[in-house]
């Protein structure tokens, strides 16, 4: 399906790299490396140069921590979005927020997509996306409250739950007026899930792809990778790329990542193997 994220259009088979840009002092992977605005801006320039099609700007870390109210969240991301918009007109700007109030402000500043990592916790977020003609990422959290860790969560069938919830969310967004081509679903690995849930979602991602909605995966350096290999943050790249390969083979379209170059190569290689993408340049044995 063709993706249109506000004014940015992508062909049916195109895969997209969504680079994570944290305007937070405490996110799990970079630990505040891009907390300063100039550092965050340097990160945007870096990933844009690496070929990322999307940046996902976030002002609040996902894990529990100091409460960040909407005013503080806006102060972290709105002006920054405007700065990125002006400097990188070709880049798709996504903002990781669950709050409609923040979504409205960032869209006014030039954001193209609202990445609702908390699965519709604020029901008015779809209306904001619709009002601005922005895209929306519909995630599955199993009903988890924003910024909470899973605690003894179980599902009859986690994949069925992810499909039912994200498709329902996508249809709600569509009904609210969000353009169909701007709606994406995301099983949200590790959100409201233990490692076994995230592994099953990875293994059966093809079932989500079969819904026809474009699928985003956010696998980068997450705990399910760490627990699978017993590796700390900082040593999970290989595991992340292995999981990425499985998701790519299943047909995921958007990859929310810390490492753009490595993920792009992985996704392209898988899609070349799958026959969805031609080899870059082939001459061996053909001369």
């Amino acid at each position: 399906m063709t993706l249109r994220l506000r004014t940015h259009e992508f062909a049916d088979e195109a895969t997209l790299m969504m680079a994570i840009v944290n305007r937070t002092p405490d996110s799990f992977y970079d630990k505040g490396a891009t907390w300063a605005e100039d550092k965050a801006f340097e990160r945007v320039a870096l990933v844009a140069g690496q070929g990322a099609e999307i940046v996902d700007i976030g002002g609040i870390k996902a894990a529990p921590g100091v409460e960040i109210d909407a005013a503080e969240e806006k102060s972290r991301v709105v002006d920054f979005v405007a700065r990125v918009r002006e400097a990188f007109p070709q880049l798709v700007i996504s903002v990781d927020t669950w709050r409609a109030e923040v979504g409205d402000a960032v869209c006014a500043a030039g954001a193209d997509v609202l990445n609702d990592a908390w699965g519709g916790a604020d029901p008015e977020l779809v209306d904001v996306a619709a009002a601005h003609g922005a895209g929306i990422i519909c995630t599955h959290t199993g009903g988890a409250t924003p910024r909470t860790r899973p605690y003894r969560v179980e599902y009859d069938d986690v994949v069925r739950s992810a499909i039912d919830d994200t498709v329902a969310y996508a249809e709600r967004a569509l009904a609210a007026g969000v353009p169909r081509e701007g709606i994406v679903i995301d099983p949200a690995h590790d959100f409201g899930k233990n490692t076994f849930h995230s592994l099953e979602l990875t293994r059966r991602l093809g079932e989500m792809v079969e819904t026809g909605w474009p699928v985003l995966v956010s696998l980068s350096n997450k705990d399910f990778v760490g627990e699978s290999l017993d590796l700390p943050v900082g040593e999970r790249l290989v595991g992340t790329l292995a999981a990425t390969s499985v998701a790519a083979l299943a047909g995921a379209r958007i990859y929310r990542v810390h490492e753009v170059v490595e993920t792009r190569l992985t996704v392209d290689m898988v899609n070349v193997i799958a026959g969805r993408l031609l080899p870059k340049r082939a001459i061996r044995g053909l001369q």
Binding site: P279, K280, R281, A282, I283, G285, L286, Q287
Partner: peptide
Amino acid sequence: GTLALLPEYAGREDPV
């Protein structure tokens, strides 16, 4: 007679 001229062996970039 290089097979690189055949469409079934095309890549995203043309080596010839």
